[in-house]
Simulated assay, not measured.
Amino acid sequence: MIMRFEELDYQPTAMGDLTLRRRREPTLDVDVFEVKLGDEFLMSSLFTVAEEELAHLGLAAVAGERLDVLVGGLGLGYTAVAALADPRVSTLTVIDALPAVIDWHRRHLLPVSESLVGDPRTSLVCDDFFGLMRRDIAPGAARYDAILLDVDHSPRHQLDPSHADLYTVEGLLALARHLREGGVFALWSDDPPDDEFLVTLSSVFPAPVAHVVAFDNRLTGGTSSNTVYVARHAA
């Protein structure tokens, strides 16, 4: 019998049981890395285009050199590694609330782990991104040229109810304080563009854009899509 599934790690968390597994996808003859939280699938290495485009689209909207970038949500690491591919990135801070996820990369369990942790520009930080955004900015505290966020399924569908306040005007104003003038906030979403959220976003950031990122779904033979919101901080 051929073993199709291998559990690489299992950790109980406050949000549910977190599982990293590798499986062989026979229809494509590839190894697939998947993350589950409880019974819910969070991410798969089969579908990384939109995660990478979160970095590409977000950083394309940022002017200047020697950029300081903050990524909220480490996951499989594809957004962070895509950001590192931009030579203008001087520092990359990646925040994840789950110590196990950071440990996966430090143990080189995932395909991009070595590239990520081996880059001297990278700092992996175990913290609550949403809590960090709520905190007041102390004099001399770090501000960023770009904040790239991929944690929740969408502004309407959060992994944890405590995240919901970020997607309000008050929450976005708090986040904007962590950006430098002209800095960019970019957000991944599994849902189609949300007109109501765009109105909320435009209350804080002038002229935000919702990019639809389409990609081939190798399992269905069709096309799937995600959304990447990009918003620039005016002042």
Rank of each mutant, 00 (worst) to 15 (best):
E34D: 15
E34T: 12
E34N: 10
E34G: 10
K36T: 14
K36D: 14
L37D: 11
L37Q: 12
L37G: 08
L37W: 08
G38M: 11
D39M: 12
F41H: 15
F41T: 15
L42P: 06
L42K: 09
M43D: 05
M43F: 06
M43P: 05
M43N: 06
S44Y: 06
S44R: 04
L46T: 05
L46C: 08
F47P: 00
F47Q: 06
F47H: 13
V49M: 00
A50Q: 01
A50D: 00
A50F: 00
E51S: 06
E52R: 07
E52P: 00
E52S: 05
L54E: 00
L54M: 10
H56D: 09
H56V: 07
L57N: 02
L57E: 03
L57T: 00
G58V: 04
L59K: 04
A61E: 09
A61T: 07
V62R: 03
A63P: 02
G64F: 07
G64V: 09
R66L: 14
R66V: 13
R66H: 14
R66D: 15
L67N: 03
L67P: 00
D68E: 15
L70S: 02
L70W: 04
G72W: 00
G73R: 03
L74D: 01
L74N: 02
G75M: 03
G75R: 01
G75T: 05
L76G: 00
Y78T: 01
Y78I: 00
A80N: 05
A80S: 13
V81F: 03
V81G: 01
V81A: 02
A82E: 01
A82R: 00
A83Y: 02
A83H: 03
L84F: 07
L84D: 07
L84T: 10
A85F: 13
A85C: 15
A85I: 11
A85L: 13
D86M: 08
D86Y: 09
D86A: 11
P87R: 13
P87Q: 11
P87N: 09
R88D: 11
R88I: 08
R88W: 07
R88V: 09
R88F: 10
V89W: 05
S90K: 15
T91H: 14
L92C: 08
L92Q: 03
L92F: 08
T93V: 15
T93E: 15
I95H: 04
L98A: 14
A100P: 04
I102M: 08
D103I: 06
D103H: 14
D103P: 04
W104S: 05
H105S: 09
R106T: 12
R107V: 10
R107H: 10
L109V: 10
L109E: 08
L110I: 12
P111H: 12
P111A: 12
P111Q: 13
V112M: 11
S113R: 09
E114W: 13
E114H: 15
L116I: 08
L116T: 05
V117H: 10
G118N: 14
G118V: 12
R121G: 13
R121S: 12
R121T: 14
T122G: 10
S123G: 12
L124N: 07
V125L: 12
V125K: 11
D128Y: 07
F129H: 07
